[in-house]
């Protein structure tokens, strides 16, 4: 475990090394999440509530999104794809550690940095937006539910991204899989809108997909707009998806490693 801790710490240090990258990332996040509340407020009109959200709750939803997103969203497919395509995966195969665990802890370092920066942005925004948001009040059981939903989100985000990255063992042009995933998750995870605004049939379909645990479920637990039985249903669905994705990753990895030809010394 100690070796993975080193990987984690090294990546935190590395993320701080590329300050321009971090700055750009802050600007992107701040602007993206500044825009959405206004777009949604425009459709409220005279209504007090929409899809179970008051205006203040909806603004809070988009303020909380970068915090959750920084922890659950995984970009590991990009590095994994590169390692396979460029043959650098060989150096990881020769090391006494699990490649998938290495990638998880390696990304966890940059996730922590992304989270801290998002927290900084939110801390700056909150004093200005204090009249337009609701601050979450959580009981201890709800807090544990929130932590569990985050753990599901982190796991599902990572396993989906790694499965997409490992497709590179078979094809160098795997961006189609990634784009379909993006398209679906943008819609179903609640990135572009809370899914309670969608027609009922869509909501039912979405409740059986893993996406909502990436963004919407943790936020809805914080805002108390989801009942405990609903949360448990999502956890059950999430657990099934975690099992499926874990199995898929193990299968792809076993089959893929046998195919790989590494050029070099």
């Amino acid at each position: 475990m100690k070796k993975y801790l080193y990987v984690f710490i090294t990546n935190i240090k590395e993320a701080f090394m590329w300050r321009e990258n971090l700055f750009i990332w802050i600007v992107i996040n701040a602007l993206t999440y500044a825009v959405y509340p206004f777009i949604f407020i425009a459709i409220y009109g005279n209504r007090e509530e929409l899809g179970g959200y008051t205006r203040a709750m909806l603004v809070t939803y988009f303020i909380l999104m970068p915090l959750i997103d920084s922890l659950t969203l995984s970009y590991v497919w990009d590095d994994m794809g590169k390692h396979v395509r460029e043959g650098t995966i060989g150096q990881y195969l020769a090391k006494p550690m699990s490649y998938l665990a290495f990638m998880f802890f390696s990304e966890a370092g940059s996730r922590v940095v992304r989270f801290l920066l998002s927290l900084l942005i939110v801390a700056i925004v909150i004093p200005f937006a204090r009249h337009f948001i609701v601050l979450p009040h959580l009981s201890l059981p709800r807090f544990f539910l929130f932590l569990a939903s985050l753990a599901f989100g982190v796991g599902l985000g990572f396993l989906t991204a790694s499965a997409l990255g490992l497709i590179s063992f078979w094809t160098t042009r795997s961006d189609w899989a990634l784009h379909s995933w993006w398209a679906l998750s943008a819609f179903a995870a609640g990135y572009v809108a809370p899914t309670t605004l969608y027609p009922p049939t869509f909501q039912i379909v979405i409740s059986y997909l893993p996406y909502s645990l990436l963004i919407e479920t943790p936020i809805r637990i914080l805002l108390d707009t989801i009942t405990t039985p609903e949360v448990i249903h999502r956890f059950l669905v999430g657990a099934i998806w975690l099992g499926l994705l874990g199995g898929l990753n193990a299968y792809i990895w076993r089959r893929g490693v046998r195919r790989v030809d590494i050029v070099g010394i």
């Binding site: 321009e20 750009i24 602007l31 825009v35 777009i39 425009a42």
Partner: peptide, 26 residues
């Protein structure tokens, strides 16, 4: 700047989020 890999995300992300909506709402 030596490493600004994500500079294009600035455009791609914001253009995707803002470009297709009427900015009159902002």
């Amino acid at each position: 700047f030596f490493r600004i890999d994500n500079v294009n995300d600035l455009w791609l992300s914001i253009a995707n989020d803002v470009g297709k909506y009427p900015i009159d709402a902002l």
